[in-house]
Amino acid sequence: MSAVRAEDLRKHYRIRSGRGGEDRVVHAVDGVSFEVPEGRTLAIIGESGCGKSTIARMLVRLAEPTEGRILVHGAEGVDRRAIQLVSQNPWSALNRRKSIRHALEQPLAVHGLYPDKAARAARVRELLHLVGLTDEYLGRRPGGVSGGELQRVTVARALAVEPRVLVLDEPTASLDVSVKALLVNLLLDLKRRLGLSYVLITHEIDIARHLADEVAVMYLGRFVETGDAERIFSAPRHPYTRALLAAVPGPGREPAAPLQGEVPSAVAPPSGCRFHTRCPMAVDACARTEPALEPDQDGRLVACLRADELLSPAETV
């Protein structure tokens, strides 16, 4: 059974316009399906506004899908404890007036776990140790703790109710390079020790590359390419995936030939393939026909009318 299964998820937000005007609809997520096998990590990558964080919010039921459904370990919406969120900014995720002890006790209290006082205190210490922090942090408030340590606290808090799946929404985006490494290592270690499954939402390609078993590339509310992470990162097929990976700056690399323009509005997504307005390979048909995600020869799914022509020379031999 998969840890998470999402079926044709959609989330549309209505924006009210002033008197007389017609309401507009933001197609934040527009029909995505995915599965995360138990013990695996799915990374959803894309740029801001593509809808990846909306998926995170739907997974933990902070937002109700407009259409579609989400199954966690085969069940729909029964057990909130089974799937928990770690968000991007630990400073805004924690109450700055309350101690870290309070932050870790809160989920236990809400769910009526460890009602015995001594047992609850022991559990709080256990959680803190789990993320590599010592008892001395218990009495501190978020203001007196560094960003990297604070992000560990939010991970510990998410683990308090013994979830089987963590949704990691840009977990390292606010952290410095040296601290980022520590958090990545912690996530790898926890997954192994606790048998967790992860849904990792990120725009940091190198973090996704390091943690993910599978990857879904998202553009304007839809997946354009999904499949085995190593295959996709080493040989991206969809023109958007290629542009996105090429745009990652690194030593010894020239800045990528940039895509034209910017991501169009999700209020009025382009007709046909949503990427056609910026795609270097677009042909007339791309503006008319919306490509479906079709299986490729190596098992990945690609949504591109010209997918067959996109094999790299090495692969066609």
């Binding site: 740029e47 745009a247 700056p249 800045p255 990528a256 940039p258 895509l259 910017e262």
Partner: peptide
């Protein structure tokens, strides 16, 4: 900025 815009 986003990755593709940063590249620009």
């Amino acid at each position: 900025l986003d990755a593709t815009v940063q590249a620009q």
